[in-house]
Nucleic acid binder design. Structure first.
Lengths: 328, 328
DNA sequence: TTGAAAGCGCTAACAC
DNA sequence: GTGTTAGCGCTTTCAA
């Protein structure tokens, strides 16, 4: 037996389909009408079909969050924050993994035109003109959790990496470290670029030269370990800043393999302040780039734009803080 | 300007909407027809509306994966596996977090009747009669990645926890440990029950008495640390098995706080063999309960049932293995 | 091979 | 306050 439709409910209740719809949507109706409808609904076990509703009202009540890698704990934090905001507003959240390639990001944004979601929060790893264009042309609202040019005219929420880097470098100086190295992720990514610039500036401000800078192949744990090996083969830092927590933890494994102690021999700072930072050993000092707040703000921006598509795009910058733990 | 519809394409191409639909769906048509339609599609930038399509064909081409906690790395592994299988079959994956309560799981399953997805893979933390009933009554196919009674008559893919426990205990005995303790998660959960039973059996088989057994409040890192404190206040194990990797890592932090060395003073084994196991320090020996394979098999079962709802329910058991690392 | 037309299940005018 | 009805955009008979 197939699912009952609104027509079946109407028949059983002896009323019109419109009345059933009204009662179900809380529109004005007499007590008696409401009762009859409710009884029929219960009797048949009727549940409205969201597909049909979507088609009619032009909304799916579904929002998409696109991240590069579900295995990166920073996205877990962001995902939780986004989920909280959108579900409070009555939306379901669809989490999609784009992978590292910009073409897949573009395909995803273009695919939004199919209308399976009412909006998109995307945290792009790589950005090019195609991606910006696809966002601008997208039929549904898109909010970027990351960095796109201001002239793109899209809502964005981003971190302040340079300031975060300053926090990290200042902290290391406080701890008496001078021989500072940097493990970045791929510099052709959005976070990679931002952190590279931030690191360079922060070092220059303090009149320091980096002991070494290496670029990991991606933002993952194994890449962090490999980058750590490369770094340590080339120099003897007394502190290393890593572009995210996964890289930092990978690096710490390489340090351990070489019997270098953290923080005694080498201090390590990560970025993102994800759950991994407190779970790692020793617990990782990490720059909190506000991923929870960024997620929350991005979701709010998206909801606001769904309400009113004509509002002027906002560019929110979330300020960082430092979570000091035992790795420094 | 609003999105072009199939009618607009038909108008521009000077053909009927039916022909446009046919060309788009690869049904027989003349070369010329195909060309004209394609040109109109390109010109207008037409993209079919998946909502309308869903309503008509009765499918959303969307599948749901429901897990208790996105922050648990075991689900990352499972999610990746499920995603791979379903996207290869042309479906989008919606990942939903249910939280720890069975009522929310039930609500989720019931909500599937709204038709926003064509199927569900659920990994329930807690199972009761209501949940089983809601799964049986569900309008769309449901596959359980976990343990429900055979009489429920639903497709399931589950781990073999008892055998996993045996692997863990045998390994510890090999390493010369005898004073074995166990940190379980809540025993009113599916994995909690299974692991409790498995541990008890494995110990009995070897004629051993546990030094201590404690039950963490949930399967998280902080709960692991708290449970570790309780455990160590009560006894002096030379090895601890934890019911999952997060608990194991939490426990290791407590050990470190008490200046107990892993594995010298206390060996530690986790379960799940998630990415966290290799990221932790020291790297964690962990029972691989086949989460990737369970995800893959569950997804395959779901696709098969969508194809043919009359097939007899299958109950797949995935065998465990042990990933030995430095924590033992 | 192509076109006309009937819906899929629902909501929102509009008329009563 | 309630019922009738026209679609939302698409696919799929059914005829031509």
């Amino acid at each position: 037996m197939s699912r009952p439709t609104i027509a079946a409910v109407a028949r059983v209740a002896g009323v019109s389909v419109a009345s059933v719809s009204r009662v179900l949507n809380g529109l004005p109706a007499t007590e008696e009408m409401a009762a009859r409808v409710q009884q029929a609904v219960d009797q048949l076990g009727y549940v409205p079909d969201s597909r049909a509703r979507s088609l009619k009202v032009g909304r799916t009540f579904q929002l998409t969050l696109a991240v590069a890698d579900v295995g990166n704990p920073v996205y877990v934090t962001m995902m939780r924050a986004v989920e909280e905001v959108v579900s409070a507003a009555g939306y379901r959240l669809v989490v999609t993994t784009t992978g590292p390639d910009v073409v897949d990001e573009v395909a995803l944004v273009r695919g939004m035109a199919r209308g399976y979601a009412d909006g998109l929060v995307i945290s792009p790893l790589r950005v090019d003109d195609d991606l910006v264009k696809s966002i601008q042309e997208c039929d549904v609202p898109v909010v970027v959790a990351g960095n796109v040019p201001a002239r793109a005219g899209v809502d964005t929420v981003r971190a302040n990496s340079p300031k975060g880097m300053r926090l990290a470098v200042d902290h290391l100086l406080d701890r008496g470290r001078r021989r500072i190295a940097f493990v970045n992720g791929p510099v052709d990514t959005v976070p990679g670029t931002a952190r590279s610039r931030g690191f360079t500036e922060a070092m220059k401000t303090n009149g320091l030269e980096p002991v070494a800078v290496v670029e990991a192949t991606d933002f993952t744990f194994p890449a962090g370990r490999a980058a750590g090996a490369e770094l340590l083969d080339g120099g003897f830092p007394d502190a290393v800043i890593a572009a995210n927590d996964l890289l930092a933890v990978g690096l710490m494994h390489e340090l351990a393999a070489r019997e270098l102690r953290v923080p005694d021999d080498v201090a390590v700072i990560g970025m993102d302040d994800s759950e991994l930072a407190e779970q790692s050993f020793p617990p990782l000092t990490s720059v909190n780039l506000g991923s929870a707040e960024r997620g929350r703000r991005a979701a709010e921006l998206l909801l606001a734009r769904i309400e009113d598509d004509s509002r002027t795009p906002r560019r929110i910058v979330v300020q960082p803080s430092l979570s000091v733990r035992r790795s420094t």
